[in-house]
Every structure is written in structure tokens, then in C-alpha cells.
Amino acid sequence: MNLSTLPKVILREMLQYVSIKDRLALRLTCRAFAKLVAETNAGYYDGICAVDAPTFDHKKQPCENLISVHIGGASFHGVTKKDEEINRILYLRNLLFRGILDDSIPFAFVRKLVRKVKIRNVHLIVNSGLQLEHAHQLITDYKESTLTMELLFRPKIGKLLMIPPMTEMKIALHNQSTWSLDLFLKLLAAQPNLTLEEPVEDMTLPNLERVVQLLSAIDHPRRVRFRVRNDTMSLSSHGIDALFEIVFVTTRDALLRLGYQRCLIELKNIDWKDDEEYADVYITNCDAWWRNSWQNPE
């Protein structure tokens, strides 16, 4: 008996514990092993297939035409974004293992695969224009489901506003950008439950009043969460009680709760001295629910 003549069930078990680099070496032992390596999954490796793009060269200059591909323990650097190169990577990946789930599986295939599956909650994480296109297709496919979205990039304004109303829409760009007041108001009209991670510009108290006026005029439940600069809001220099009804104030979390027509507003991390850079703002027009919970704080 020799290694290559072991029963397949044992060889497959064994291959689970072999790293990608050692798989490369195993391919060179014999044909049976080259075939076995290609036909088995890659065991315990996390992040089995990932692509970095763009990568940077040693001068820290963007190399937008190059990508790095990581397959388990092996890395392929300086791969040009050409079909020929990508196909070469996929070819090599096919020689190394099967059963990999990654972005290289065509969306159309995945869509077809799940077409007849009932999915009650569909959460879409969208990080590129292509993924947004795919998200639109899934939204069409799952009109009856609860749809939520996490948008991780900023599409062009037209495309951003064309996203249908989500049960929850969170936009987190994870960069230093801000939202203009104008675009914020448009988003507010488009999405009933909106969370913005990046701050909204020009959110003075009068502009905050514009926001709550807009929300108060809408009959359907609306919620919005966003961030503002404390110095823009400038709570210390305005007569806040002239504009809003003060419902609750506490120094814990620097919290202020305000009422305005059908809306309730929660300002968190507010700073009268403008030491704290950003405050968090939550507004809802579901006044009954909020009044009950806010007027009886723990």
C-alpha cells in the first residue's frame, strides 16, 4: 500500500488539513494527487478567496490596473485586471480545490439558484455599482419580503435616490465625507427608515426644524438617524425651548429629548460648550410609541 492508493474517503479527510501552499507541492507528487487536490475543498482556511483592488506599489502610488488575489495561504500579486489574467487565476484555483464560495460565482447563477426559495428577510450589503444593480434585481425578485440595505459606497445622486424604500436603510461610507442638507432632505423623502453614519452639513436648529416639519407632515411612520456637528447646531446660542418642547434632559449620555408636532427628537452626545464634535440625532414621527418610552425613562 502506498500513499496514493489510500481509499478516497481517507485522502479527502487528510486533504482537509493541508494548507494551500502544501497543496501546490502535492500536485507535483503524482497524477492521483494532482486530481485529488483539484477535487477537494481547502479545509479549515478562512478567507479562502479574496481580491484586493486597487493595491499600492512601494511608492504608495495607486496601481489601479493591478489587483492582488489571495487564495488561502497563497497570494498572487501584480495581477492585471484583464480577463486573461483573471481566467489564469481561476484556472489555477480550479487546480487547487473545489467548493469555493466567492464573488466569482456569477450573480445570475445565484439568482437562479434561489429563485424559488421563499426568503422572509432579505438584507442587502452593497459596496459597488455592480452590486447595486444586483440589489435592484433582488429587490424585484423579493418584493414581498422585508428588505433592508446597508450601503457602503456613495452612488451617483440619481442612482442613490432611485433605490426603492427599504424597511431599513443604513448608509455607512466609513470615510471623512459628509451629506449636504439638500441631499439629506431628498434621502429623507425616499427612505422611511434611514440611518446615516456620516454627518449632515448645515444642521442648524432652524434646519432641524425644517426636517421635523417635513416628517410631521408625513402620515406614514418615519425614522431617521444621523450625526451633526455640535458647533453647527449651536444649542448654547439659540433659544431651543422657543422652537421645541423639551421632553427630557439628562447628563447621562448628554441626552436631550424634544417634541415637535407629531415628531420626537433625541439628541445624544450634545455639548453646550462645543467640546464634543458630533451629536447623534434620532427623529421619529411615530409619536405615540416614542412618547410612551421617552416619558418613562429608566
Binding site: N2, A25, L26, L28, C30
Partner: peptide, 18 residues
């Protein structure tokens, strides 16, 4: 599988008599 770690194809072949 531990015997394969860091080895080349010919080394594995030789050690295991493949």
C-alpha cells in the same frame, strides 16, 4: 498531512515512496 508541511513535491514523493 503534517509530513507534507513545507516539503516539495519530489520530497513528498521520495519520503512516501510514490
Amino acid at each position: 498531512s503534517n509530513t507534507f508541511k513545507g516539503k516539495t513535491g519530489p520530497q513528498i514523493r521520495e519520503e512516501w515512496g510514490v
